[in-house]
Amino acid sequence: MAYIEVKNLNFNNNLVNLTINDKEVIGIFGENQRAINEFLLIISGINKNNNTCFYNGENIFDNSHYFKQRIFLDFKKIYTNTLNKEFIEENFNNRFGLSFDTKRFKELIKELKIRKETEIDVYYTFTQQGNTLVNFSLVESLNVSNIIISHPTNYLDSERATFISNALTNKNKYNCVILNLDRLDFFKNKLDYLLLFTKEGNIIKVNNDDHLLVIEDNIYLHNRLIRGKGNLVISYHDYNKDELKKFDKLKIKYKVISLYDIDRYREVEL
């Protein structure tokens, strides 16, 4: 069943048509974080969508039925400066009518060793890693079925990033998950599909078995995603045989890679 329907949304001079279904985990990836953030603000119902995005047939903009079932967090931002679970519970209950599982929150603080991720200065603050972990613990402890998260593995080491990626893609807990990813490798085989935001402003829906092209930058490229090392560019691979032959003819080095190898090829040469 459709959770959100996007019909003819004019986004960056592109018409976007998309159906996000229940029990789907969707990844979003691209270098243009401003465009992605703009898109997420529309999908989360925070900004206007010119009557193109719907939940149960109703426009999602400022829709209280839609809002009560979703949260939109950017793990780079600070949402709490305290680990006082009773204080947090009271705030979520009183301000937002959300139930907060203090027991689960306490377990996660211990398991993820969040108390070690603090800096003691004039104020008690979390490190960037600590802030990501706290935000994740908040999301996990809230009783919300639909989540939109930006930068879920921001500054995390691989062990904790894997833990978080497993938790956030748990379909037994969440109905619909939309993740703006910093890194794809932690989410291998955990996503239903990916939305790639290209530098040209296109949004491409790709499956897990689609491929990318790591290639020396040139004028014949389209659907560029991110810069690689040196003059390499990683782009979505929808090039036909003739186009690839042209690259061979012009002695432009390239390599076809899997979607989830993108992070590795950001830092290596061909």
Binding site: S64, F67, I71, F72, L73, F96
Partner: peptide, 12 residues
């Protein structure tokens, strides 16, 4: 912005 991230609409 903080309130809109959770369950509170602009009207609320």
């Amino acid at each position: 912005d903080f309130q809109l991230s959770f369950t509170t609409t602009r009207k609320d």
